Simulated assay, not measured.
Amino acid sequence: MINQLKTAAMLAALSGLLIAISYWVIGGTSGLIIGIGLAAATNLLSWYQSDKIALAVYQAQPVSEREAPGLYRMVQRLSDRANIPMPKVYIVPSQGANAFATGRDPEHAAVAVTEGILNILPDDELEGVIAHELTHIINRDTLTQAVAATVAGAISFLAQMVSYSLWFGGGSRDNNRGGNPLGVLLTVMLAPLAATIIQLAISRTREFSADAGSARLTGNPRALARALQRLEASAKQIPLNANPAFEPLLIINSISGQFLSNLFSSHPATEARVAALLKLEQQLPTKAY
């Protein structure tokens, strides 16, 4: 419950930041109205198109049971166990080992795994990863993260456009009609950074919950712990490169060496996640399915 409240507050902060940027850059009531409209439009776009956007970013391809029988049946089995509709199954054509889920609700969801993760994980560890992604679907994290990615992307795009306008003479407008010059400067310098920090904080609050949900669904927390360690080692060698705004969707941080501290990490430290899973293992009875 606390994590859900924190997530809602951070999503509100992202939308508020987008509105504030429009107010400072454009100026006055017009800027405020445009900002509210832009925030509403990006959230609406995320609600209805989040699955398509994320899948397109990673060039994920749909697969049938005939094309990937083992994977398909694993997703089906775990979905039945979780009592949710089976999501669509996709494979990402990349040797980077990773996975993600997307969609606005369990009825409109998809699970995607890379070719790389299928090559390096044994079945029990892959099951832990799939269960993690299904937990994101159950908790509606897929929608939350997609909205955060889209709004953060809109903030960065707006700041970039402002930067271009300053370089090419856009900063000479009349201050009585345009935005506040100090607000314009702060937008270019700080808004994308603030949006990124908030977006990544949202992602980190959801990963521990998804790990715990996976452990309860499979009854095998240690398998997911091993998978996370294996995936982290693989990501350092073969990162899954795509739009950084969608990095938080992945099960493991795939852009090795890009972040300087936990503040700029899309995921909690793998060591902390493993420790939490091993602690949970002591509390859960081993289940045989």
Rank of each mutant, 00 (worst) to 15 (best):
L182E: 14
L182W: 09
I36A: 12
A101M: 10
A39C: 06
L14F: 15
P244S: 06
K6N: 09
A110K: 06
P62K: 10
G219P: 07
L278Q: 12
V75P: 02
L260Y: 08
V184S: 11
G169V: 04
P285F: 08
G27Q: 04
M1V: 14
G183L: 05
L193V: 04
V188F: 04
L14T: 10
A195T: 00
P106M: 10
N119D: 13
L193K: 04
L284P: 02
G96S: 07
T150M: 12
A101Q: 14
Q4R: 03
G178N: 13
Q282R: 11
V89K: 03
Y58L: 08
S46M: 06
Q229T: 10
E115P: 04
G169P: 00
G116R: 08
L186D: 09
I252H: 10
S163D: 12
I84V: 05
G28E: 01
S172N: 15
A215F: 00
I34N: 00
A54Q: 07
S22V: 00
R104Q: 14
Q229C: 03
P181T: 04
S261E: 05
N119K: 13
R177H: 08
D174Y: 00
A245H: 07
L38N: 01
S266I: 02
G213L: 00
A13K: 09
D123S: 15
A12Q: 06
I91W: 06
Q49E: 15
